[in-house]
Amino acid sequence: MNNLNYPTIALNGLWHNNPIFVQMLGLCPLLAVSNTVVNALGLGLATIFVLMLSNFSISLIRNIVRAEIRLPIFVLIIASIVTAIELIMQAWFHDLYQILGIFIPLIVTNCSIVGRAEGFASKNPPLPALWDGFMTGCGFTLALILLGTMREIIGFGTFFSQAHLMFGESMNWLTIQIFENYHGFLLAILPPGAFIGLAFILAGKNIIDRKIKNIKQKRSVIILQQTSINN
C-alpha cells in the first residue's frame, strides 16, 4: 500500500498535504499564536506531541472501536492527551504556558488532529500512524515558525526574542536584533498581519508548486519525445 511508504508519509505531512498550506485546518491557533517565533515553536511542539500520541493510541484501538462511536472515543483520547500536555507545560514551561494561555487547551479543537485520527490513524498500523502524526505535526510547526518569523521580523525587528521562555536563561544569545532602533510595525503583530502574511505564504507555495509541475511536464514531454524517436 502506497500510504505505508515512510518517505511518502513524510512528504505528505510536510508539503503535499500540509495541514495549514493545503488542508487549511487549524488556522485559529496559527493566526493567534504566530506573533513571535518562540510562541510559534512552543505551540508547534505541543501539537506535535499531541498528534503523535493521539495517532498512536487511536491506531492501537482501531480494530476494537465500533465505527458508530469512534468520533466520541477519538475526542476523549485527544482531550486526555492535551490535558496531560497542558499540565506538563504548566509545570516546566510556566512562562510560555502563560503566554500561550487558552491556545494550549484549545489544541483539542484543532481540526487537523481529529482529521489525522479519522483519515489515517484509524485505518493504519501504529508505527506508520505515529510517523504520520510526527510529520503532520512538523508540517504544522513549519507553517507556524514561517509565519512567526515573518511577523516577528517585520513587527518587532527581532528574531527569536524571549528565547529564555523555552530554553532557559542560558540560551538568550539566540535572540537576534535584526534592525537597530526599529520603530515596530504594529500591523504585523495584530491579527490582520497574520492573515496578510498567511496569504503571501500560500501564494508562495502555489508558485513553487506550479514551477515544479511545469518542470515535471517538460521532463515527461522530453522523455516522450525521446521514446518516440527511439521507436
Binding site: 520603530h183 510595525f185 504594529l186 500591523l187 490582520p192
Partner: peptide, 8 residues
C-alpha cells in the same frame, strides 16, 4: 488605515 493602526 494601515498607517493609523501601525503607527498611531
Amino acid at each position: 488605515i494601515i498607517l493609523l493602526v501601525s503607527f498611531p
